[in-house]
Design a protein around this nucleic acid. Structure first.
Length: 556
DNA sequence: CAGCGCTACCACACCCC
DNA sequence: GGTGTGGTAGCG
């Protein structure tokens, strides 16, 4: 949502400055293109958002490419055209020398890797062998996690190495299988490379050989650099998950084999001697520019060419040249549509947690926690009503839910009234505890004195409407969780316009709908159901709620 | 006239010991 | 010293 606002704002500002520079002529004359003209689409934009807006307005199957045009500062312009037309002008390699595919955010795409290491800093590294081992590991993971069969023959292997640098792009050509988008690809890649992270976390050089073969028992307590994307909030849970994942993997690989995949071959040194992974994890961001087959970086001579050890060979075609086939295969977001296309997803534990928070609590064994608002907005409302008294507007700083006890613990901010001392604490915050099992609430606090005597206020019954509502909501959430589950598990067809071969209809454009909206709509279904009862809570970013809304809820 | 999307890093505030 | 936050240089 925030992203959309930012993008919209940026667009508006951009438009404003454009009109200031070039005001509209007094008479606006729209022109129609001649119907007999062949469809030729070749449009350049200075701004990526403009390029994507044009793509959306286009009936044809067009795509955004980035062209480097100034040496040094990596400045790019954006080209919108079809794959066929780009290839027509591109194939001669006389112009368009520094082209990048823009892998659109939220677009279905292939599994891909950017691999590199400094040859001088890693004189003993055998790049080809490392690529082969990586492919093997990835194929195994695809089989284990998604039951997808593939081998090195399905991996288009492109080389862009120099004397100093070993550099490869791998683009997986899976049959009837693609990822939901490149962020999911990144999640998948990080997940399957997890065992390698602890190898680079340690400082001493001997740890590589030492730690291999010991399996996963030496996971570092602190998340290493690459895992920074996982939030602090979910790190414990995430660690737990990776452990179970690892033990599963251990089981599947069998006891005869090593207890865990040996990924030490992925560890390389950069030119300052620091340990890094052979796999570049920085290429799975939104609208990532990925260099095209036969393109070079501006200012450099080396283009991406088919690697010596490439084992992928496209199908022979009478209408499409072999080179064109390779070109099309190299495009990450060129996913062939089929009725049996499977879309793979890989959420981070952060995203998973979001789902868990709003789904049936019995699905999860561990306790959950969060900030500002819990999965029970009505209870949040009630708690907020308790801490909004005498002109003091308290808020929810943090909440935790303990499953066995069915206990919601709210850390309150700003409001510090303590029943124990009969006044507000000066520097310590209080807690409100909601016991869902016994349908009561009570107060405790962080004050050391109160803590020492294990102070707990009297229990007060929860309002009947909250207890009742809780029962209702549990039922709704159960069904909602079920639907969500089947949705994510079963391979589903994305809405048309999402696939690279489908065009976005004008209707979609007018509605401003995109794939994210569909997903959000589905996830909000249960909240919408709650809203129908007129009791849905309301949470601002600050955890503060308009008074009139609280009143409304309490009256009901 | 005009790139984009991050992350790593730093400075700083705040809190609690 | 631990932890959160806000701003930014610089990387991919």
């Amino acid at each position: 949502m925030e992203r959309k606002w930012e993008a919209k704002l940026k667009q508006i500002e951009e438009r404003a400055s454009r009109y200031e520079r070039k005001p509209l002529s007094s008479v606006y004359r729209p022109r129609l293109s001649k119907p007999e003209e062949p469809p030729s689409i070749w449009k350049l934009f200075h701004r990526q958002t403009q390029a994507f807006n044009f793509v959306k307005s286009c009936k044809e199957d067009v795509h955004v490419f980035a062209l480097e045009y100034k040496v040094g500062d990596g400045q790019r312009i954006y080209l919108v055209t079809t794959y066929a037309q780009l290839w027509f002008y591109y194939k001669s390699r006389k112009n368009l020398l520094h082209c990048y595919e823009v892998i659109p955010e939220n677009a279905v795409c292939k599994l891909y890797f950017d691999l590199e290491f400094n040859k001088l800093a890693n004189p003993e590294a055998d790049g080809k062998k490392m690529v082969a081992l990586l492919i093997e590991h990835v194929c195994k993971a695809l089989q284990e996690l998604y039951r997808v069969n593939c081998s090195a023959e399905d991996v288009f292997n492109l080389d862009s190495s120099t004397d100093e640098k070993f550099s490869r792009h791998l683009i997986f050509q899976l049959h009837d299988v693609a990822f939901k988008d490149n962020v999911h690809v990144g999640n998948f890649v990080r997940k399957i490379l997890q065992p390698a992270f602890h190898l680079i976390a340690s400082e001493d050089d001997d740890s590589i050989s030492e730690s291999t073969g010991h399996g996963f028992s030496h996971f570092p307590e602190t998340p290493v650099k690459q895992r920074i994307s996982f939030s602090k909030m979910s790190s414990d849970r995430d660690r737990g998950e990776s452990q179970t994942q690892n033990s599963k993997e251990r089981g599947r690989l069998g006891s005869a084999e090593q207890s865990s995949p040996d990924l030490s071959f992925l560890v390389v040194k950069n030119n300052t001697g620091e340990k890094h992974l052979f796999v570049d994890l920085g290429v799975y961001t939104r609208n990532r520019n990925f260099r095209l087959y036969k393109s070079s970086k501006i200012g450099k001579q080396v283009a991406l060419e088919i690697a010596e050890d490439n084992r992928f060979f496209p199908k022979q075609s009478k209408t499409i040249s072999e080179e064109n086939q390779y070109f099309l295969s190299s495009l990450v977001s060129n996913v062939r549509f089929s009725d049996t296309l499977r879309i793979l997803t890989c959420d981070t534990s952060q995203n998973k947690q979001k789902r868990v928070e709003y789904s049936n609590s019995t699905n999860t064994k561990g306790n959950i926690e969060g900030f500002h608002c819990s999965p029970y907005p009505e209870i949040d409302q009630f708690v907020l009503s308790l801490v909004n008294k005498n002109g003091i507007k308290g808020g929810i700083r943090h909440w935790s839910y303990f499953f066995p006890e069915e206990l919601l613990v709210y850390d309150i901010c700003k409001y510090r009234w303590c029943e124990n001392i009969g006044r507000a604490h000066k520097s310590n915050n209080i807690m409100i505890l909601v016991d869902l099992k016994n349908e009561v609430w009570y107060q405790k606090c962080h004050d050391p004195v109160c803590k020492a005597e294990n102070f707990k206020s009297d229990c007060f019954p929860l309002p009947a409407e909250i207890s009742l509502l809780f029962l209702f909501k549990e039922e709704e959430e159960f069904t909602a969780a079920e639907t969500m589950n089947s949705d994510t598990k079963s391979p589903h067809k994305p809405p048309s316009g999402l696939l690279s071969e489908g065009a976005v209809s004008d209707a979609d454009w007018d509605n401003g709908l995109d794939e994210t909206d569909f997903v959000e709509a589905a996830e909000d279904a249960e909240l919408a159901a709650a809203a129908e009862h007129g009791l849905l809570g309301y949470c601002s970013g600050e955890g503060e709620i308009p008074d009139e809304l609280i009143v409304q809820v309490l009256q009901e």
